[in-house]
Design a binder for these strands. Structure first.
Lengths: 229, 229
DNA sequence: ACAAATTTAGACAGCCTTGTCCAAATCGTC
DNA sequence: GACGATTTGGACAAGGCTGTCTAAATTTGT
């Protein structure tokens, strides 16, 4: 829709550019101050436009807020699907490949600007706009989680993992690779890259202890290969 | 301090009662509306007192907010420690016992009113009061996570689990048993009891696949006992 | 029942915010 | 260079909120 083809009856190119910069600035201010605390003058200033222009483009504060959430949802979803497309379907080294995937997911979708903002807006104002966030839920987790589960199912079918319920496994994968980042997320912080890698590494190792095929067929002491840390 | 002994020079009994009802009402309003959107008149109305009484007790809006967060932190911490005290140190049936513990933790500390409110306030306003929430971090996760890790270490020492790093295991335990509740939490909802049990059951099963001692000493097909769901 | 402390209701000033209006300035295009 | 659309800045009304003040009503302890 946004990336559609040449709407030739388009107003000046700067028009759309301003719309974008307003939505961007608004996202930041809504996140920092909350809906009630967000100040249109401040949004206009941060967007580098006049207050009147904000009203020209978006009508009122509530419509602007809705535009912000829709924009973020759209961008985040695109990012998540692009990242899921890099899922290792035929891993050479399943541990390393899953860790790489988890790190990409975190860095490109969860810890980046859009991801942080969308998450915070959902947490903060989710109850105020039930239908808007129901829409997010359908378009977001409702579509991305099954997509991820399908990838894990394929990995199981290929003999790389032993999984009964791919949906549960997918959710637990996310829970595990983010287990060490919860406190940072809570406070709105951005984990350092090494924290992300650390959490992903620990998470994937545990995930594979639960769902991975045992490397040694039989006889060998089972935990010995892992427990020598 | 609050639970100290007999402050005999205490004003009327209703004084402290009113203070409590104000803080309680304020917690609800701050959560629903955010700090900026919270209305002192509304808080007073919900607390069943006059606006002036709110100011008499707490000075101004910011002090009231701080009192709310401190109160919630204190109560939640108490609840978490009380629940950790029920950790199964010598489990008869480790799966059932850990599931029970996870359910208690969720119901008594995370899904209850105080837990929901504290979580939302931290997410919403954490960046606005760095020192206040740093305090929460020290008193909360900083104390409860190690306490939980110590219990898991004891379980490993007792031969019930195989764990290298108890801190990591504790965080992953929490991540796993809450894996299926994330979306609900995001939107501020309260999961039903069956959802909590379901998530805890799946989480504990996976946790034990990763860290549990294999039930059959040797020879038997390893996943067979678990994979027949 | 009395005295002290607390609570209440209402009014009030000061401030901030939203959303509108308008004339002048600017921009993009032909 | 000229024209039309867009943007700008400033003024403006209407409304909401915080925090203070006061005198009257109520509660509490003795």
């Amino acid at each position: 829709m946004r990336l559609g083809v040449s709407p030739d009856t388009f107003p000046p190119r700067g028009h759309e550019a301003k719309r974008l910069s307003i939505v961007d600035a608004a996202a930041g201010v809504f996140c920092r101050e909350g809906f009630a605390g967000a100040n249109i003058d401040l949004i206009a200033a941060e967007a580098g436009v006049s207050r009147q222009t904000v009203y020209n483009h978006h009508g009122d504060k509530e419509k602007l807020f809705i535009a912000v959430v829709r924009d973020l949802t759209e961008r985040c979803n695109a990012g998540i699907f692009a990242t899921i497309a890099t899922f290792p379907d035929q891993p050479g080294n399943i541990e390393a490949d899953l860790i790489g995937f988890a790190v990409r997911l975190n860095q490109n979708c969860i810890c980046n600007r859009d991801g942080k903002f969308l998450r915070k807006l959902i947490q903060t104002e989710g109850e105020r706009y039930p239908e808007l966030f129901a829409e997010w839920r359908e378009q977001g987790p409702g579509r991305t989680w099954p997509a991820l589960a399908a990838r894990f199912a394929r990995l199981a079918y290929g003999g790389y993992l032993v999984i009964e319920d791919p949906d549960v496994a997918a959710r637990q994968f996310l829970g595990l690779v983010n287990a060490e980042l919860q406190t940072t997320f809570m406070l709105g912080g951005t984990p350092s890259e090494s924290e992300v890698v650390q959490s992903a590494t620990n998470g994937v190792r545990t995930f594979l202890r639960a769902f991975g095929k045992r490397p040694a067929p039989a006889g060998v002491k089972k935990q010995a290969t892992l427990a020598n840390a």
